[in-house]
């Protein structure tokens, strides 16, 4: 299975519009995100990332195979 992530905004300028990974099984969202961040050297702080699907928040521990489309949101810290 291939999982692709589309970057928007500044990240797209930095990393191109898309990055894909080939997976053999169904790892968690967190595992996939760690791989992407590490492999592509994505300059984000993991703690600021949350995941949404169908407008609802999704646990990073959920299997990636459960979702057709997943939004990765970088939250801004207040204060």
């Amino acid at each position: 299975m291939i999982v692709c992530i589309k970057f928007l905004g500044n990240l797209a300028e930095l990393l191109g519009s898309e990055a894909c990974l080939e997976l053999n099984n169904c790892p968690s969202i967190a595992e996939v995100m760690w791989s992407l961040i590490k492999d592509k050297n994505v300059p984000v702080v993991p703690e600021h990332l949350i995941f949404l699907s169908g407008g609802k928040s999704v646990s990073p521990e959920d299997s990636i195979c459960r979702f057709n489309e997943l939004y990765v949101i970088r939250t801004l810290q207040g204060g």
Partner: peptide, 12 residues
């Protein structure tokens, strides 16, 4: 605090 980073859990 960031020794154990977790998605969606700000450590500041």
């Amino acid at each position: 605090l960031r020794k154990t980073p977790r998605f969606g859990e700000p450590k500041e």
